[in-house]
Simulated assay, not measured.
Amino acid sequence: MEQRPRLRPGRRLSFHADHRLPHPRLTTPWGRSRRMRRVLRGATHVAVDGFLPVYGRVGRSDLGEDVPLLSRQGLRVALISHGTDLRDPDAHIQRNPFSYYATAPREWVDLARGLARRHRTIAADLGVPLFVSTPDLLLDAPWASWLPVSIAVSDWWTPRPALTAARPPTVLHRPSRTVPPIKGTQIIDPVLRDLAARGRIRYLAPETVAHAAMPELVAGADIVVDQILTGSYGVAAVEAMAAARLVIGYVDPPTRALMPDQPPIVDAPPDRFAAVMEEILADPAAYADIAAAGPAFVARWHDGTAAAEALRPFLDGSIVTT
């Protein structure tokens, strides 16, 4: 197994922003409200991300108060959800026998259950458009619209095709989080370490990687193991598909049934992960076409075009907020 040098994480994600707000602890509610009014001056639409309060402090304020205020200011409001902020743990366990909620710490699951229930109630009561960034969340909020995650596709392009070299394939697994263990690393890592010890694969398992370093790391891999417990897929899988890497994950049948186009992801639920790896290693060339299909799928759904189309009814007013 190869482990690249530990990189200093720093700020893993950094994006341009026209306005930056100080941490709520560094300002008073009055000061934050005044600053937000200045930021929103001239705006016509507000998309509230992750159910975070617009004017108040996290944990002390309620969007149920903020959204009517924004509407009275003449702003059209929508909500955007990304996962645990909306997902029902009990429903997830019921449809997915490998659900990470079944093995995660009970305290964390209880907190997630209560928060998600509260957010679903807020979203339903407010009557504003709700967008979800992963398709499985449509099972928790059927009235929502899928807003596909978007990436800078050109950042991930690499000329080297996957699974074509004579040497053992290089496999990368770098979960964005390991606590709680929602990606299945506790199952994935021992299998990959064993394969690496037997010379079957070259295993990349960096401890900490800044996001800016990920395109190079992914380009050096043939296979990217994403997650095998969530039943859906997220940004890491999209980035690997954009690089035409073979993505191993698990998109459960109810989620696949919702999708208009099937993602080129090899399903490897926990009870079959080791077997799937053996199947791939026995005939890697047979999986090269699946890897090669990734960029076209990303171009259709994750380069920003599909997201813009999903937002269009909200932006042009054909979806009327209440």
Rank of each mutant, 00 (worst) to 15 (best):
M1P: 05
E2D: 07
R8K: 01
L21V: 15
L21T: 13
P22K: 08
T28P: 05
R37F: 09
R38A: 14
R38G: 11
G42P: 14
V46D: 08
D49P: 09
F51M: 15
P68D: 10
R72T: 08
Q73W: 13
L75A: 08
V77P: 01
A78M: 03
A78N: 04
I93V: 13
Q94M: 06
A104E: 03
P105H: 07
P105E: 06
W108H: 07
V109Q: 03
R113H: 05
L115R: 08
A116P: 01
I122K: 02
A124M: 00
V128M: 04
P135I: 10
S145Y: 10
A152S: 14
V153R: 02
S154E: 15
W156S: 05
W156R: 10
P159S: 12
R167K: 05
P168E: 00
P168K: 01
T170K: 06
R174I: 00
S176I: 01
P180Q: 06
K183Q: 02
D189M: 06
R193T: 11
G199A: 10
I201T: 14
I201N: 06
Y203L: 10
A213Q: 04
M214R: 07
A221P: 07
L229S: 04
T230Y: 00
G231Y: 05
V238R: 00
A242F: 04
A243W: 03
A244C: 06
V247M: 03
Y250A: 05
D252V: 02
P253M: 05
P254E: 03
T255M: 08
M259W: 14
P263T: 13
P264T: 12
D271K: 02
E278K: 10
A282F: 06
D289W: 15
A292V: 15
G294Q: 09
P295C: 12
F297N: 10
R300G: 13
T305P: 13
A306R: 14
F314G: 04
D316W: 11
S318R: 15
I319P: 02
T322G: 15
T322A: 14
